[in-house]
């Protein structure tokens, strides 16, 4: 699937993550800011990439500002950003959820 428009989800508050998705052309490109980037950058990216994969999204620019979010929070915020980016907020993908 292709991203239709830029979308954002999440907050900049502690234990949360802000995720911005927009159109990409060369795979999934990350721009990640996190206090725990050293330890967890790869895990955070993997979670987001897998979630994008559930929707068949192969190309995207992903900007992430992580404030120490747990895995399930990262997944939830990514799902919301995807629904918005696909212009499909009213049609949640139940199989994925």
């Amino acid at each position: 699937m292709e991203i239709k428009k830029t979308a954002i989800a999440g907050t900049l508050e502690s234990s949360d993550v802000q995720i911005m998705l927009s159109k990409g052309t060369v795979g999934v490109e990350f721009d990640l800011v996190s206090d725990v980037a050293k330890q967890f950058a790869d895990d955070i990216k993997l979670t987001i990439k897998e979630t994008l994969g559930l929707y068949g999204i192969e190309n995207a620019v992903v900007k992430v500002v992580d404030k120490g979010a747990l895995d399930m929070v990262i997944k939830a915020r990514t799902l919301t950003a995807i629904q918005r980016a696909l212009d499909a907020v009213d049609q949640p993908n139940w199989e994925v959820l």
Partner: peptide, 21 residues
């Protein structure tokens, strides 16, 4: 910093609602 981040989230979301990122 908590309050700062809350304010900035709110401002960015105001813009996002209008399609500005």
């Amino acid at each position: 910093s908590t309050l700062f981040n809350q304010l900035m989230t709110k401002l960015e979301n105001f813009m996002a609602v209008e399609g500005r990122f």
